[in-house]
């Protein structure tokens, strides 16, 4: 165990990346699509967890920013013929901008009030996309037939592309979690009042967190739009927020990788169990209850405890 731990993190990361890239040769086409979905779900969960786990703010409207990213890519490429390579990087920008406005209001409230306010804003964005701006967004039908560049049309190439984006995001977030910013954020999460007394600008830190989380959700949404070739208003609906929420819960909220693992696992499990029963929500419910009661720090927390790895965040 001691030897294992002495291997630097980046070597581990590289090994995981190589294995994941290697899967593109091994897996079938359908499995590759599923794997891409898992990566996107993982990124979405990680983006939420920046706000939820590290920031300690329970966010019910996160799907709105995921959906905004997806719609940005869809509208730009479909309606304005913007190349995907330009549209995709713009997705997090749009999400971050809207996130800045929404977040500015939300961080002025705490706990339950924060959560309900994010829910309200998320639903406002949902209704705007669904009906208020229906001419622009395609309303309930959404936008179909998003043009995709030749090079990433094949499932294999798209998987590798998603993996590349995911890896880049992971590295950025990893660096972020090691930065003083996240330490400060933890101090705020544990005791906002005290943090304020030692001179920290609590709201500014929380707003920055909110914006960062929104931006990464935008990337995840953009990737999903490309994968599905279509976007719909349901991507913004508040129940979509529960997917990364449950993923974070399963994986463990206090680590970077936890939510990614949890979300990917949930997606895989969903598909696997759906083969046998139509009662997936029941299974999900029972699973959630077990995790919350037995392993509140999630699977990563559980494995860390049993593998004797020092707990990263708690």
């Amino acid at each position: 165990m001691q030897k294992l731990r002495s291997i630097p993190t980046w070597v581990w990361g590289l090994m995981v990346a190589v294995v994941l890239a290697g899967l593109s040769v091994v897996l079938s086409e359908f499995q590759l699509v599923l794997a891409s979905q898992m990566l996107i779900a993982a990124l979405f969960a990680m983006s939420l967890n920046i706000i939820l786990g590290f920031g300690g703010m329970v966010h019910f409207g996160h799907a709105a920013f995921y959906g905004l990213g997806a719609y940005t890519v869809a509208i730009l490429t479909k309606n304005y013929n913007v190349p995907l390579w330009v549209a995709l990087p713009l997705a997090p920008v749009v999400s971050a901008l809207v996130g800045a406005v929404v977040g500015w209001f939300c961080v002025r409230r705490v706990r339950l009030y924060f959560s309900i306010l994010t829910l309200a804003f998320g639903q406002i964005l949902y209704v705007i996309v669904l009906s208020t701006a229906a001419d622009f967004t395609g309303g309930d039908n959404g936008i179909h037939g998003i043009p995709v560049p030749e090079i990433i049309v094949s499932a294999q190439n798209y998987y590798l592309f998603t993996l590349l984006v995911f890896a880049l995001c992971y590295v950025v977030l990893y660096i972020l979690t090691k930065a003083p910013f996240i330490l400060t954020l933890r101090a705020i999460r544990e005791n906002a009042e005290r943090a304020q007394f030692i001179g920290l600008d609590v709201r500014r830190h929380q707003l920055a967190t909110f914006i960062i989380g929104s931006a990464f959700a935008g990337i995840a949404g953009g990737l999903m739009a490309i994968l599905n070739r279509f976007v719909g208003p349901d991507m913004l609906f508040w129940t979509t927020s529960s997917e990364p929420l449950l993923g974070s819960l399963m994986g463990g909220m206090f680590s970077l990788a936890g939510p990614a693992v949890g979300a990917a696992l949930l997606l895989g499990l969903h598909l696997f169990i759906s083969q046998y029963t139509e009662f997936w929500p029941t299974v999900l419910g029972i699973l959630t209850i077990i995790v919350v009661l037995v392993a509140p720090s999630g699977l990563v927390g559980l494995s860390n405890r049993y593998l004797g790895v020092a707990r990263a965040e708690e």
Binding site: F105, R108, I116, A120, V127
Partner: peptide, 21 residues
């Protein structure tokens, strides 16, 4: 305002939370 009607409850909710939580 058929296009925006669904918006109103949430807008009311957001305004109340911001102004008078």
């Amino acid at each position: 305002w058929p296009g925006g009607a669904q918006l109103l409850p949430f807008a009311a909710m957001a305004v109340v939370l911001i102004v008078r939580p």
